[in-house]
Design a protein around this nucleic acid. Structure first.
Lengths: 188, 188
DNA sequence: TCTTGCTATGCAACTCGTTGCATAGACAAG
DNA sequence: CTTGTCTATGCAACGAGTTGCATAGCAAGA
């Protein structure tokens, strides 16, 4: 049920509509959580009916009306409860690793392109995170002394950056290994 | 549907029963994929009915009979197909990061224990992976020239090791940040 | 002997997440 | 004036994953 809590945190940071939340889930929150708009709308509706969220209809000019959600007192309490109970360290789900082990029963060289494609995606993400870090935390336009919330956002972002760097280095390792297998040592 | 393919790869590496697969998913395959026994039994049954797997009843002495599954020709073909089609780079799901950002609206110091607990779990996993690496790939008992399958298993394991190391370093960063917030600079 | 633990398989119910589709107003480009 | 894109919300169906429970034989130890 962590999507509920991710939404609570995001709405505490700033109230917004389902659509806005969906876009945040493609950006900052997307470092560590993903959700589609359908999921978000469904959960928002349920949480509102449970009294965890408050809705406000906001008419807009030049675009459709939106429903702005914010966290109600019971929502804040629910989040606090969750924050104080232990959670399981996450489990990995890495399709590419399945493919790499599977390549032993197929053509390893055929994987090179796929790995390179992933390398590109992760490089792009890294660049995007670094730009965000400069803009919000370490650049000249960032607030001079960060408050607690910003410090915590920054350390989470540093986690995303570390993850992308690690992944890129590993994909280099994978590529080197694939090339080594494709061209076995000529001296052997 | 990547569980299907993870099972195919595992059964190609070595045929086995649902129970054995479940235990592999707690060990080597668990570096990058998890599954419970219920999930595995259900998928095995489905894949067998689809003709992707073959079953063989193996009577055992001193313990219940088991059903040993192995990959049939259509299963191998299905895996090959999947290996040649591109997959999306994975998305993260990191509950702890949600908690860290949520801590801004609660007591950041209360998170220290939780983060330390995760630190311990990841340190244990790292030690476990390193022991496995020494045993299977880099130690004196490891096969002298690794074949392609072993090379690929090794590079996947190196990915798991890199992931744990990165995570541990990040959790240190998180702890330092939490301590900094708990004890703001006395000179300020 | 009774309990605990391991091997071994499975059902049923539920929640979570994905995919495809639908609606609808506003605006910009062709 | 039509097509495409962006904001904005939503349903329905399906597939994936989790949780609780049930069974059953065998072995080891209290």
């Amino acid at each position: 049920m962590a999507l509920d809590h991710a939404i609570l945190v995001s709405l505490l940071e700033k109230p917004g509509s389902g659509y806005e939340l969906a876009r945040r889930f493609e950006r900052s929150i997307g470092y560590f959580w993903t959700a589609t708009h359908q999921q978000i709308y469904r959960v928002l509706k349920r949480m509102e009916s449970e009294g965890l969220l408050a809705v406000r209809d906001v008419p807009q000019h030049g675009r459709p009306d939106k429903k702005e959600y914010s966290v109600a007192a019971p929502g804040r309490a629910a989040l606090s409860l969750w924050l104080h109970e232990p959670i399981e360290p996450e489990s990995m789900r890495h399709d590419l690793a399945v493919k790499i082990r599977g390549a032993a029963f197929d053509d390893p060289a055929a994987l090179v392109r796929e790995v390179e494609r992933h390398h590109q995606v992760h490089s792009d993400r890294l660049a995007h995170y670094l730009a965000g870090e400069l803009r919000d935390f370490t650049g000249p336009d960032a607030p001079a002394p960060l408050d607690a919330g910003q410090e915590l956002q920054h350390v989470v972002l540093r986690g995303g950056i570390a993850y992308e760097r690690m992944t890129i280095a590993w994909l280099d390792d994978v590529l080197a290994t694939l090339h080594r297998l494709g061209a076995p040592p000529p001296s052997a």
